[in-house]
């Protein structure tokens, strides 16, 4: 039996339909990533599965327990780390952990030893007896996850664990999550970032406007969205139009190249990315086009969305500012 079953979840807030029948399952010791832009319904789904919201319709089962019928039973089996680090900043890291342990009905001695163990595991031992008020954003998130793990949950829910983190803390967070995966934790992770889903997840469910619009592995989703792209910058703006013509033989059918004359850039879907940089440079050289830069980039959430829904992910203001997908390199998403 899967660790998590979401079966036809429906939830409305007033006139807004947040979820319109979302279904997925998570196998034990695997990682499912729920991918979607802001407002897609990711958090609503997590809140239903973690008993914080009651679904209007549908069934949610965690570790064999129906979350609506037995919410406290379900709560004993889950860990939740929400979008904001839910730590009491007036207390120390150790006190936060001990508090949660006691509210999981551990004996005091047991809660204390578990707290020390988790502080060590999340590299917080030195900060453990300081008030959380002085912690950095990354430290708070680590403490938050440690608090979710105190009772060894059957399923851990991480709602956008890297949103709002600087790139370095984000990488640290990925290491933490890698560690959880290595330990065999069953994990549901939501994110707005395809690279994060690709890096961490076994399976991905893409949701938009409260519905599942695609599911599969990262490779399956990316090939559905047109595969890798090559971004060519040339020195002469008049050469931009010539780039797709010269490279016509290597382009993937069915996906339009994006030409940005102002930036002197052409973004092209490639049928194969083997030796792509030497091939592109050689062909353009032979055609007498002066190439400034060639970048191979993987499809972003934007690309996946564009392909699946015909509209942009509209996941953040940065994406709105970009008229062309060419600027949305994966690193750019790590804000």
């Amino acid at each position: 039996m899967p660790a998590v079953i979401a079966d036809g979840l429906v939830k409305s807030f007033g006139d807004t339909e947040a979820l319109r029948g979302v279904s997925f399952e998570i196998e034990r010791a695997s990682v499912l990533c729920v991918l979607g832009p802001n407002g897609a319904g990711k958090t609503t789904a997590v809140r239903i599965l973690t008993t914080l919201l009651r679904p209007d319709a549908g069934r949610a089962v965690v570790d064999g327990i129906d979350v609506v019928a037995d919410p406290r039973g379900a709560r004993a089996r889950i860990g939740l780390t929400g979008q904001y680090a839910a730590v009491d900043e007036r207390l120390t890291g150790f006190e936060n952990l001990q508090l949660v342990g006691r509210l999981f009905h551990m004996r005091t001695a047991q809660a204390r030893s578990r707290a020390r163990e988790l502080l060590e595991r999340f590299s917080l031992t030195d900060a453990g007896d300081r008030a959380v008020k002085g912690y950095s954003g990354g430290m708070r998130r680590r403490l938050d996850i440690a608090m979710s793990l105190i009772a060894d949950p059957s399923v851990l829910f991480l709602d956008e664990p890297t949103t709002g983190l600087d790139p370095r803390s984000r990488l640290q967070m990925w290491d933490v999550i890698d560690g959880l995966v290595a330990d065999g934790t069953t994990l549901l992770l939501t994110t707005q970032y395809l690279d994060e889903a690709e890096r961490l997840a076994d399976d991905i469910v893409v949701i938009d406007n409260g519905s599942v619009i695609a599911r599969g592995t990262a490779t399956q989703l990316k090939s559905a969205s047109g595969g890798d792209r090559v971004e060519v910058t040339v020195s002469d703006r008049d050469d931009v139009d010539r780039v797709p013509v010269v490279l016509a033989g290597s382009l993937q059918a069915g996906v339009e190249p994006v030409l940005d004359h102002a930036a002197r850039q052409a973004t092209l879907p490639m049928s194969s990315t083997d030796h792509v940089v030497p091939r592109v440079v050689r062909s353009l050289d032979e055609a007498g086009i002066d190439v400034v830069d060639v970048v191979v980039r993987r499809p972003t959430l934007d690309d996946v969305f564009l392909q699946l829904t015909g509209h942009r992910a509209e996941n953040d203001t940065d994406a709105d500012d970009d008229d062309s997908t060419s600027a949305a390199v994966p690193e750019g998403a790590a804000r």
Binding site: L52, R75, G82, A86
Partner: peptide, 13 residues
């Protein structure tokens, strides 16, 4: 506002 109530509500207390 800090999400701590949600944390408590997700515990078996």
């Amino acid at each position: 506002s800090k999400g701590f109530i949600d944390r408590l509500r997700s515990l078996p207390m």
